Simulated assay, not measured.
Amino acid sequence: MTTISRAAAGLRRPLRLALLAAALCGAQPALSADPAKSPSLPSATAAPATDAALRARSQAAACTNCHGPAGRAPAGSTIPPLAGRPQAELAAQMQAFKAGTRPATVMHQIARGYSDDQIAAITAWFAAVR
């Protein structure tokens, strides 16, 4: 039987956790900071992502819970897709939700949580998704 010292056994757990974290991070290509390796980034972003672009993508990620990955709603969904729609159209709808002039179940509450600059960035991100 092989015996392992307490010091060696104590290193196993952090090593396993580090390997698990690396595997989990590797399984999340949408979170990659390299746009060339990230399928969820708009194809128009061939240059390295800026902080503003990464921030917009992160904020837009909240929309994917309902509107689908990268704003592509599943087939047959009653929730509209956002990917590739004109930025002005998306921004106008978000502003209408925010003002309470467009009927909604939850979007009016969600839209109120964003500043006008954030809405512009998020809608530009979805407009660029192809």
Rank of each mutant, 00 (worst) to 15 (best):
M1V: 11
T2W: 08
T3E: 13
T3P: 01
T3Q: 13
S5N: 04
R6T: 13
A8C: 00
A9P: 00
A9R: 09
R13C: 04
R16L: 15
R16C: 11
A21Y: 00
A22K: 02
A23Q: 01
L24A: 12
G26S: 11
G26V: 07
A27L: 09
Q28C: 13
P29Y: 13
L31P: 00
L31K: 06
L31F: 09
D34L: 09
D34F: 03
A36M: 05
K37L: 13
S43N: 07
T45N: 11
A52G: 03
A52L: 02
R57L: 08
S58D: 09
S58C: 09
A60P: 03
A62L: 15
C63W: 05
C63A: 10
T64E: 14
C66T: 08
G68P: 03
A70K: 04
P74M: 12
P74K: 14
P80I: 14
Q87A: 15
A88Q: 10
L90P: 02
Q93R: 14
Q93V: 09
A96S: 06
F97R: 02
A99C: 01
R102P: 00
P103L: 07
P103A: 13
A104F: 01
V106R: 08
M107V: 06
Q109K: 11
I110R: 08
A111F: 03
G113M: 10
S115G: 06
S115E: 03
A120W: 02
W125H: 14
V129Q: 13
V129F: 02
R130L: 03
R130H: 10
